[in-house]
């Protein structure tokens, strides 16, 4: 019956009113428009990162832009071991897993299965909290090593480069005297600004997911007859994952 009504709906002229031209609800369309504007926000940050990086190749007062993966070479409980890129890959893995549990919650919502929606929402919330904890640890380590919002002690000297090249994966590594000097300030500043902005989005996503989870438990969507709110929260959550794909590529890999 419902499908038949929708089929006649589709036959109406698209822009003459009386139907949704995109065949989505008001809320979902607005979520997409918000995500588009948020995409521009993150793009402007990443564009600035690119321009700053290219304009700081090497100067008289600072050394060149350091290779990020060799700076973020720490792993919890593995003090002094050179493990570039490993911890951030684990963080990426956590975010991908929480994305898949989110999309499974959306799929369960399409089948109006309240129990499954609850289960997958709990998994997603825990994934988000795990990611935020990892990021807090990474920030703490980076700050401990001397990075600040207004200064950057990661200008790698020639001696430092040789030192980095001489160690291989999982060797012991600690900065020696003369390995580092003052480097381009935007390296540390933009790291804090961009990962901080992304982390704040993850935090908001966790809050949204908790609210939606409580609404599910209280049977709000069951009474409403559909679980579209899960889908809208899911769109936001996947967007956060999408931004991380680019942060991972530009801040760690390249």
């Amino acid at each position: 019956m419902a499908n038949q009504a929708e089929a006649t709906f589709e036959k109406q002229p698209m822009w003459s009113g009386g139907r949704s031209p995109f065949n989505v609800s008001y809320g979902k369309l607005m979520m997409w428009i918000f995500l588009l504007s948020d995409a521009f926000t993150f793009s402007s940050l990443l564009v600035q990162y690119g321009a700053q990086r290219f304009s700081n190749i090497e100067t008289a007062v600072t050394t060149s832009w350091p290779d990020p993966a060799s700076i973020f070479n720490h792993f919890p409980f593995m003090h002094g071991v050179h493990l570039p890129l490993l911890f951030v890959s684990v963080m990426t893995f956590i975010l991908i897993v929480s994305s898949v549990t989110m999309v499974l919650a959306v799929e369960a919502g399409h089948r109006n299965s309240k129990k499954e929606v609850q289960k997958y929402m709990v998994y997603t919330i825990f994934g988000g909290i795990a990611f935020l904890s990892c990021q807090a640890w990474e920030w703490a380590t980076f700050i401990h090593e001397g990075a600040r919002l207004d200064s950057n002690f990661f200008g790698i000297t020639e001696q430092g480069y040789k030192h980095l090249q001489s160690v291989s994966f999982s060797d012991h590594f600690e900065w020696a005297d003369g390995d580092r000097t003052w480097g381009p300030v935007p390296f540390a500043a933009l790291f804090f600004i961009v990962t901080g902005f992304h982390g704040f989005h993850v935090f908001s996503g966790v809050v949204i997911n908790v609210v939606v989870y409580i609404m599910t438990v209280r049977g709000v969507f069951e009474r409403r007859g559909h679980y579209e709110m899960i889908e809208k929260a899911g769109l936001y959550w996947h967007f956060v994952d999408l931004v991380w794909v680019f942060v991972f590529t530009f801040f760690y890999l390249i």
């Binding site: 990443l46 690119g50 290219f54 304009s55």
Partner: peptide, 13 residues
């Protein structure tokens, strides 16, 4: 925009 500003950034350096 990215392409343009990378090019300009390089020129600034």
């Amino acid at each position: 925009l990215v392409m343009g500003l990378l090019y300009e950034g390089n020129a600034i350096s």
